[in-house]
Design a protein around this nucleic acid. Structure first.
Lengths: 342, 342
DNA sequence: CTGAAAGCGCTTACAG
DNA sequence: CTGAAAGCGCTTACAG
């Protein structure tokens, strides 16, 4: 007595073959649209398929064929608008390549990233698109050697050579800070994400470079790196806008932090607010008063380019790994053009 | 000469067995942590696994075991903040149940929904969580009979009995419109999504009910249903706020439409703007002037409840399909409390 | 044009 | 404690 698999009792090709009075291989031919079957036979098989409600088990097919026609997308947080826009773009490209998409959020936890990545590999995804949470991806080397294509996006791969798509984070921050400087602001603070996050460090670097280029000093208390929770951001903002050495402008290191700053400033009269430029765009940034000036990335483009690189590898591209740099674009809307206070 | 599968040449359990000088079944025992293997043997097998870089092929395992430990999530648009928040919650629940998540966007196209849903079924996902684009889901009946669990969210299933999680759309819209009425507004317009979308119809119904309850008339030109593109929304808004029978308040049927309305009103002086309440919350809704009053859904809760229902079915819950109704909550922020214009 | 046999990489059911 | 055989549902390689 054979065990019944747990998923009900689905008809198999064998059942269809029996019902149609043909061989198994003939059913396979019909299901896959292969030539060399009389139309009469095709009809009989099709009828049996319809009667039994047969649907080919792609898991079995995959086991035999090798390619799973699926890729895994590992991002930081599906719920973040930046990453969901990126994910949607990846999905479109996957669809163009008849591939399905596994999605998982690492929640900025390297262990969780590894766990998910290896789970995807165990499912034998053809490729992996990773927004890194960790900084050491050598755990992927055996998978890559075994043929799994891997592309990194948003942050660089750790100790592994692979295609990567990055925004020019330092350059973007430099542009944003230079914009503040051009508007007469000289005492500029930087509010960033945790320093171990690569993009946070790069943006901080861009900030320092812009300040240095303009010959402006940076006081220690003007730089605050840490979690993006509203309370932390508010406290850090208060610290650098208060005291006897207050900043008159702030560069916010990402969308979460910009939102935190905006909330904290909501009750502050316009003429007492620091100028503000944020990294990453926000949905209603142009509707707020004053409009929020930002350095915008293009998450959809990042997703699209990364996915294209991935499928190029799957198509057999043998060239050396490359890194694609995307520009960040300054969008002035008012908050970054406020005059310096007193 | 056997064909090499396309995914490189990964070591199999057989390779590990040969290397460790044990039987295949012993490797399987070690990999799965089954008892009854001497620790010496375990060590030998583990060493062979490490040397070969072996990772179990879960596709093969799945084929034998029946359950795939994966579910499919079909939503309208991964890039929409509402759905990505929902998706993230689904992901969390899936993770709690050691299940991986396939994601796909139907882009409001019933054919694409069906294509994706059936592709997921062909992969033998254990269950399907569907945000319907279409209105007839009988195509899923054979899959459901074969044991695939299906739960619908956000919109009802079409001609199929299944667990469903819905927001009380009519009630939410009624509350929002009643709020406008309570603030003295009587000429209230409704700007909705395309009428064939269930939630759009329900919200329109709630609007009409609130107006009727207050004994207020609804002119035909006060109701505009259609695509959420900014241009369409702007034109529809202009039409109902202009002419000789203009509205003094607008209820916006979803987040896309609210954004369209806000953009159109950006240049209009405050005292000449219609009052506004929108369905769905927006990230910076409280930062705009005036704050955007909304009727907010809880997408994360919707995702969580739907995913829980799904896994309850997978755990064998034999009860009849149920529908869960979630409340929508009014959040007054200013735009819905504007006084009626002259 | 059609089909029987072997095999994809695992697990199941047994036997020792 | 250990392993050989059969089987999951398909495709591949071959033979007729």
């Amino acid at each position: 007595m054979p065990t019944r698999p747990k998923y009900g009792n689905r008809p198999t090709m064998k059942d269809v073959a029996t019902r149609a009075g043909v061989g198994l291989k003939t059913v396979s031919r019909v299901v896959n649209g292969e030539p060399g079957v009389t139309s009469a036979t095709v009809d009989r098989v099709r009828a049996a398929i319809a009667e039994l409600g047969f649907r080919r088990n792609d898991s079995a097919r995959i086991l035999r064929k090798g390619r799973t026609a699926s890729i895994g997308l590992l991002l930081e947080d599906l719920g973040d608008p930046f990453y969901s826009a990126l994910g949607r773009a990846v999905e479109e490209v996957a669809r163009d390549h008849d591939s399905l998409l596994f999605t998982g959020s690492s929640a900025e936890d390297p262990e969780r990233e590894e766990e998910l990545a290896l789970a995807f590999c165990a499912r034998r995804v053809d490729g992996l698109l990773v927004i890194p949470a960790g900084t050491d991806h050598r755990y992927l080397l055996p998978e890559m050697r075994a043929g799994t294509a891997v592309v990194f996006a948003d942050r660089p791969a750790g100790r592994v050579a692979a295609d990567t798509v990055l925004t020019d984070n330092a350059g973007g921050a430099r542009t944003g800070v230079a914009h503040l400087i051009a508007h007469g602001l000289r005492r500029i603070g930087f509010l960033g994400d945790r320093p171990q996050i690569h993009t946070a460090g790069e943006r901080l670097r861009g900030y320092r470079e812009a300040m240095a280029e303009a010959g402006l000093p940076v006081a220690d208390r003007w730089v605050a790196m840490g979690p993006t929770e509203p309370a932390r951001v508010a406290a850090a903002l208060d610290a650098m806008t208060g005291g006897d050495d207050p900043v008159s402008a702030v560069f916010a290191g990402n969308n979460r932090i910009t939102v935190g700053v905006l909330r904290r400033l909501a009750d502050v009269p316009l003429d007492r607010r620091p100028a503000l430029v944020g990294f990453d765009d926000l949905e209603l940034a142009d509707m707020v008063t004053p409009g929020v000036s930002v350095v915008a990335q293009d998450p959809a483009r990042m997703g699209r380019e990364a996915a294209r690189l991935l499928f190029r590898r799957l198509d057999g591209d043998p060239t050396a790994p490359r890194t694609l740099h995307l520009d960040a674009r300054l969008i002035p809307r008012g908050s970054g053009e406020l005059p310096p206070r007193g």
